[in-house]
Each structure stands twice: as structure tokens, then as C-alpha cells.
Design a protein around this nucleic acid. Sequence first.
DNA 1: TTATCTGTCCTATGCCACTAGGACAGTTGG
DNA 2: CCAACTGTCCTAGTGGCATAGGACAGATAA
Lengths: 130, 130
Amino acid sequence: MLLQVNFKTGKPVYLQLVDQVRYAAASGGLRAGDALPSVRQLAEDLRVNRNTIAKAYAELESQGVIETLPGKGCFLKENNTPFTKQVRQKLLLKEIDEAVVTAHHLQVDRETFLALVHERLDYFESKQEK
Amino acid sequence: MLLQVNFKTGKPVYLQLVDQVRYAAASGGLRAGDALPSVRQLAEDLRVNRNTIAKAYAELESQGVIETLPGKGCFLKENNTPFTKQVRQKLLLKEIDEAVVTAHHLQVDRETFLALVHERLDYFESKQEK
DNA sequence: TTATCTGTCCTATGCCACTAGGACAGTTGG
DNA sequence: CCAACTGTCCTAGTGGCATAGGACAGATAA
């Protein structure tokens, strides 16, 4: 579990961390029950303020990705979304549409797009199985 | 071509407009050569400042989506990206990965995900043909 | 209990994105 | 030329985000 930040991008540090933890969870780098680095430890390693880490963890908890046990630490939760099937698909459609719109502007054709999607799905599944 | 803004989301107004124009271009709502609403007119309609619209248009121009002719107006450009095939796929992969990670957290299975992707590709293609 | 972890709350501060409107330059049609 | 349109530049104000560190509460081990 390697977390890192890039100050040059302009993207908020806490959001960079949120994305990385989500990515790690989706690709098997983090499993349910795994402990995340402590707020202070990670803040020291990354040379950022405690509150920045705390904010990232708070965001992850609000998204249902992790669980924080007061005095003990933060742990990756079992993956079960609180949303209905309908709501989940709607949330996902938004991201799919963004990718499709981008593909259009980048002039990536349908076949190439689908090939990329399959490639990434395979990639994440292979990681998840290990 | 209907543009609208939502002040409650927290998402910057100018970025909302950028997304909508990109979406319109990808779904055939706007064609190459079409004029966009004038900065002042749109600002009045949406009850926002001129500069907010100007900023959205400037962003779209930097993305190569539109072209602005000083004193005349802004027009949708012919779609031709300046990027190499490799760069385009890299940019696209980023968005695809985001969707795949989200699908994992929302517990949307591979088949459902692929079905949604096909559905949206079909949708955009059908609009584009008209 | 004491020491040392864990996360959290508090207030303060700096910065930057966003917004705002006056003034300016290019274009068009009367 | 003049009026009315186009987009743009400039400066300023404001709000919110990110950062910073002190103080606090819960958990754990010696």
C-alpha cells in the first residue's frame, strides 16, 4: 500500500488520497479489514498536515469505503453499498458518459474504446483474484 | 442547445458549461460551425457574470472544442484532436479506470457494466447520425 | 495509573478559484 | 461615422478550501 501525493497537479491532496485508496481497494491492494496508515504517521511520511489526512479518511468513511474505530484506527470496510440497484447504475452512468464524451473528442473509435474497457476490466479482475 | 446551471452542486459554473458543451458536441446537439450563444446573452439568460461565460469559452477553446473569432463570436470547431494516438489512449484510460473503480465500489458486475457501456455508445452514435 | 498510541475538534491563517463590473478593441450594419 | 454587437483585459472582492498546530477523548499495554 503505497500512497503518494503530487503538489504540482493542483488537485487537492486529500482527494488524491481518496482516489488512491479507492483504487487500491478496487484492485486488491487493500482488502476488507486491512488497517490504513495512522493519521499522524501518514501525515509525517507525506509531509502534510494531520488534518489533510483526517479529511481524506473522513471523506472515505462518508463514502462507505472505510470504517474508523475511535482510538484504534481506520480499516477498509467490507464492500457493500447502501444504494439501490437503480441509484448505483445512475451514478455509474455519469462516469461512463464522461468517458464516452471524452472518447468522442479524442476521436477514439468504438472498437478501440471497447477494447480498452475490456483490458481494464480484465486487469482489475486479475488483481482482485490474487 | 439548452444550457443550464445548478448553483447547489458546488461545481464551478464555468465547468458545468464546459461539460454541457462537450456533451452537446458529442451527442450531435451542436455541429461544426454552429455558433454558441454570445457571452453577454448567455450570461443574462443564466443570471451569471459575463466573465463566467467567457471563462467557460476560453477553457473550451484551449481544449480545441470551439474557436473564437474576435468581434464575431464563438463557433464549434471541426473535431480533430492535436494528440497522438498514444496520448489520446492514455487520457482516455484515466477516465475508464475511474468508471471501473466506481463500478467496483458500487458492486456493479462486469456484465452489467459492459451492457451500460454498449447502451451509451449506441445512444451517442444514434444521436450523432441524425 | 501512566505513557503512548488512535482519531477528532477547535480556531487561525493564507491562498486561490470564482465571481463581479468597468473599460477597451474588433466587427458589422445603418 | 455611429451605434450595437462581438470577445477580452484589468482590478477588486469574497468565500471556501487547504493548511497549521494546540487540546481533547477513547484504546491499549506496561
